[in-house]
C-alpha cells in the first residue's frame, strides 16, 4: 500500500516506540500467559509456580473427559451464529431503511435503537434534498 511506502521513511525514527510498546505488550500478554501456565498445573499450590518442571496436560485431558466440552462448544457456536445472523439481517435492513428513507419517527428510531451506530449525523443534507 502506498501509505506504507510513504511512511517507511519514518520507520527508523519510530523505532524508539518499541521502548514503550514492548513492556506494554508483555503486560498485555501476562494474564493470558498465566492462564495457560495455570492450565498446565495440577495442584492449586502449583498454580503460581513458574518453573518449567511439573507442567502436565492432565487438566486438559480431565476437562475433555469429565465435562461435555464438545456440547458446550456446539452450544456457543449455535448461539453465536444465530445471534450474529439475526443482528446482521435485522440491523442491515433497519440501517438501509433509516439511511434511505426520511420518515416521521426515523430520527427517533435512530436514537433509541442504536444511538452509537448513528454517529454520522442522521440528518445529512445531501440525502434530504434529493
Amino acid at each position: 500500500m502506498s501509505r506504507t511506502a510513504t511512511s517507511r521513511v519514518a520507520a527508523d525514527r519510530l523505532a524508539w516506540s518499541h521502548l514503550a510498546l514492548l513492556p506494554l505488550a508483555v503486560l498485555w500478554l501476562l494474564p493470558i500467559a498465566l492462564l495457560l501456565n495455570g492450565a498446565l498445573r495440577t495442584s492449586t499450590a502449583d498454580i503460581f509456580s513458574l518453573s518449567p518442571s511439573g507442567l502436565t496436560l492432565d487438566n486438559l485431558v480431565a476437562v475433555w473427559r469429565e465435562t461435555d466440552l464438545l456440547r458446550m462448544f456446539v452450544n456457543s457456536t449455535v448461539v453465536t451464529l444465530a445471534s450474529v445472523a439475526a443482528v446482521v439481517v435485522l440491523g442491515s435492513l433497519a440501517g438501509f431503511g433509516l439511511a434511505y428513507y426520511r420518515f416521521r419517527g426515523s430520527g427517533w428510531c435512530c436514537w433509541s435503537c442504536s444511538p452509537a451506530s448513528c454517529s454520522p449525523p442522521p440528518r445529512s443534507s445531501s440525502r434530504s434534498t434529493s
Binding site: L90, A94, G97, L98, R102, F103, R104
Partner: peptide, 21 residues
C-alpha cells in the same frame, strides 16, 4: 415533500428490528 400520507417504506425495513427491540 416530507409530509406524506402513505406510511413510508422505511417502516417496512425498520419493523423487524423494531419488533425485536
Amino acid at each position: 415533500p416530507r409530509r406524506r400520507r402513505r406510511p413510508s417504506p422505511g417502516w417496512l425495513y425498520v419493523a423487524p428490528a423494531l419488533a425485536v427491540f
